[in-house]
Structure formats: structure tokens, C-alpha cells
Design a protein around this nucleic acid. Structure first.
Lengths: 239, 239
DNA sequence: CGACATATTGATCGACTTCAAGTGTAGTGG
DNA sequence: CCACTACACTTGAAGTCGATCAATATGTCG
């Protein structure tokens, strides 16, 4: 199977054959991580970055009050901790939401890219920049919108991202997470996640069975969410 | 005056003399921006990035419901839209909170750095990565903590950042913004900002006169905020 | 002074939390 | 095949934090 990082980067710009060859070579080895297990912990100083080959992962921060906030959700083809190459110390942990297969990329390989392949290097750092754009969107939703619209927004974003890597069918995708976990993404209590979900269901917007989500009315869901996909940068252009 | 970007980058790693020379040369010209004016708008495709030489700036997003969320606050030495070099299209606007002096850095100069100065290039992208870390912290506070503690956290962060560029006295700094603006940073209504501020004052934690903030009890303020400065990456190490 | 923005205060409302109990449903071991 | 357990989901009731609405102060700047 080809490296899904190629798939990821090609969403944003074209890659030369040589660049693809480089990307094929950077995964030193692969590993699996069990559901519920941390693949990186806060405070770690990783010597390698992890590329998600299969499964869902979440980055999260714990507060001293015991609460957890998931700051991003990752899918096939995402680097979950590329930024650690620059930041050196993890400011958060990364959790496997489902069983995951990951590719291990030594920081040495990344360094070599930054030394020898400027264009590829920009594309990698673009990933970090997009991460930031997604964070800003989440922050905006968290600070200034209702639970309903935030929830709807999460579903819109996730659907487009999954679709872009061929992991979503026509308005339907797999999302095997608990409502508890959704709460930690949205900054809501489990109870309120449940109630909000019921509102969305009652409105004929989505169907959910705990594993998969069906977006029943994509247009209205986007309206509900005030969703504008621009921030995902799913546009191919020279960078 | 030396380019404050040097000051900024030197917080995270050492710079060679040549690198400093390069940084001195990248500002094509400077400009001033009036208080309350946007220096970049959402949807723009900037051909240059702006380095804040003086003043406070905020990046913000507007929602369709008319609400505004400020996603980050910028001070002397910060690139306010470095990521635009990679993202191409602005996903948010940047506002001058005070009169600002800015240095204009053509994207051509940035490109040259990525082609010819790998180490410097990493340090620039580190800035984007730190930006992300700050976003994550804000998101976590927005999703999972009280107004009090969020407010306290903002003050802690701001104080350390200002101190690191020599813009804060001993537990005192200048912050000429309205409570309205603070609300847009914290995701709170103006009224509640006011009340929360009064709580902090009553608790003997801060004093504020609308222009400057005095942190009266740094220890307790950090506790209130659950503040841990690690995410700011104010540590010099090879990157 | 007059005008306008900003800060403050009071009263009410509502979204979301918390606590607590009840209802699946899948897995385990007898 | 059926009890037993565990975990997720669901529902109800009560409480709280912060929003909203509406005045009233307090600047501050021409």
C-alpha cells in the first residue's frame, strides 16, 4: 500500500516523482496501538513523529481540575505530532480512539527533508499550519457558538476530511467513538452531547448508531453549523 | 533599532551572525496601522507577511451570527500572518488593537529562506507551531474551564510573553484594550468580563485601570489559572 | 460643556452542568 | 442458553454559570 501521507500532501499541491520517493522512504517501521492507549504523552520528547496509517486518534490536554479537552481529531494520513519535531516537548498527549496502525518517522528523516527538499519541507509545515487553522475554527466555535451548531460543525468538518482521503461514502462515515469522547471534543458534558444529538436527529439532520454517522441533510447541516470549508485548505496550489 | 524578530527567534534557539543578517534584510519596508483597523482581512491572498514591530494586534474570526472570536493576541516581534505564506488564503482577519508599526516581509524573501537557510526556516516554522500550541491552550481553557480561570490564564500568558520581549515590568504591563475586546478573546460577554474582573480584583489578584495591568499575586494567579508556561516554548535549544 | 464610548450595576433568563436513576446491549462464564 | 457484569446510552430534576436586557455611572475628548 502506498504511504497515505502522499495522499494527504497531494490534496494541497502536486508532488514530483522524487518527492514521492522520499516520502515512501521515511517510515522507518510501523506499529499498532490499542484502542484507548496513548501513543504519545504530554511532556514526552519524541525522537520520531507518528503518521496515522489506519484508525482514529485524538490529541488532548488534561486540566488540573481533571477535565479533558480534545484539541483535534486525526484520521488516516495525518501526522499526529509532526510539530514535536520543532517544539521538542509535547504540550499534549495523543490517544488512539480506535485500534490504530501508525508509521514511525524518525526526526532525522524530517531534518533531512528540511535540509534537502525545500518544497517538500514547506508542504510538511503546511500541515502544521492547517492544524492551526483547524484549531482556530474549533476555538471560534467553542467560544462563540451553541452546542447544536458546534456539534454540526464537527460533523461537517469530519465528513469532508474523511471524504478527501476516501474514507467516507456518500454522506456517511464510520465514527466509532462514545458520547463521552464527543463531549471532550466539543467541550460539553456527556448528558448534553446526548441531548444535542437527539435534537439533530429529531431535526432530520443526522442518524447515528454509535459506530457510523449518516448525514441526512447536508445542506441544512452546513447551515446549522455556519460551515465554510475554506479553512481546511483542501485546494491544490503551488506552495 | 534591531529587528525584533531576532529577539523573538532567539528565545527558542541561537542564531548565527549570518542568520541575523538575513533577518535584518527581509523587511522590505515598514508601515503604520491605525487602532481599530484591519491589517489583513479574511479571504485575502497576501503577497507578504507582517511583522509586528510595535503595538498590539489580534487575529479574529467572525461568525455568521455576528459574533467575534479573537483567536490570538500578538505583541512586538510576532509575525501575525506568517502562516499565510503556506496557506495562501487568510482564514481570519488581523486587527490593530492599538496603533501599530509593522514590518512588511515579501513572501519572496521567505521563500528564499526556505530554499537557502534550513535552520532559519525551521525557526520560522517553529513560530507557526508555537502558535498552534497557544491555540490548543486557549481551546482547552475555552472548552473546559471557568471564566475566572480563563481570564487569569490569559493574564499569565500575556505577562510572560511580554516579559520575554522586555515589554513588561515586574508584574506589571500595558494592555490598552476594552472589556469588550477581552470578551472576544475569552468567549465571554462584556458584562461577564466586567464581573469576572471584579472578582479577580476583590481577590487581590490584579489591578486594572483600563490601560495597564498589575499582577498583585503572581503565585495565586497562576494557581487560579492552572497555568503551566511549558506550551509557550520559551526555552532555547537546538531545533 | 456636550457627546460618545466604556465601565458598572441590577434583574431576569436560558443553556448547559451535575447528580441520580434507569435502560439497553455486548461480553463472560457457568 | 442464561445469569452476571460492564459500559454506553437515555431520561428526569435541580442547580449554576454566564448571557441578555436595561439602566446608570464614569470617563474622555472635541
Amino acid at each position: 500500500m502506498t504511504n497515505p501521507l502522499i495522499l494527504n500532501l497531494e490534496q494541497h499541491d502536486r508532488l514530483s516523482e522524487e518527492e514521492k520517493r522520499v516520502l515512501e522512504s521515511i517510515i522507518a517501521h510501523t506499529r499498532t496501538v490499542n484502542q484507548g492507549e496513548d501513543m504519545v504523552r504530554e511532556g514526552d520528547r519524541p525522537k520520531e513523529s507518528l503518521l496515522l496509517l489506519e484508525g482514529f486518534a485524538a490529541r488532548y490536554k488534561m486540566l488540573l481540575n481533571g477535565k479533558r479537552q480534545i484539541t483535534s481529531l486525526h484520521i488516516m494520513g495525518d501526522f499526529v505530532d509532526l510539530h514535536a519535531y520543532l517544539l521538542k516537548v509535547m504540550d499534549h498527549a495523543v490517544l488512539a480512539l480506535t485500534p490504530c496502525r501508525i508509521g514511525v518517522v524518525p526526526h532525522g528523516a524530517l531534518r533531512q527533508i528540511t535540509e534537502q527538499h525545500p518544497h517538500l519541507s514547506r508542504l510538511l509545515f503546511l500541515n502544521i499550519a492547517i492544524d492551526g487553522a483547524v484549531h482556530r475554527q474549533w476555538l471560534t466555535m467553542a467560544g462563540r457558538s451553541s452546542a447544536r451548531s458546534r456539534f454540526a460543525h464537527l460533523l461537517c468538518e469530519l465528513f469532508l476530511r474523511l471524504k478527501s482521503v476516501g474514507q467516507a461514502a456518500e454522506h456517511h462515515f464510520h465514527l466509532p467513538v462514545t458520547q463521552q469522547t464527543l463531549g471532550d471534543m466539543l467541550g460539553l458534558s456527556t448528558v448534553h452531547v446526548n441531548r444535542t444529538l437527539q435534537e439533530l436527529r429529531a431535526g432530520g439532520l443526522v442518524a447515528w448508531n454509535g459506530r457510523g454517522i449518516q448525514l441526512l441533510d447536508w445542506e441544512r447541516l452546513q447551515q446549522e453549523a455556519h460551515f465554510d470549508p475554506a479553512y481546511l485548505n483542501l485546494i491544490k496550489e503551488p506552495r
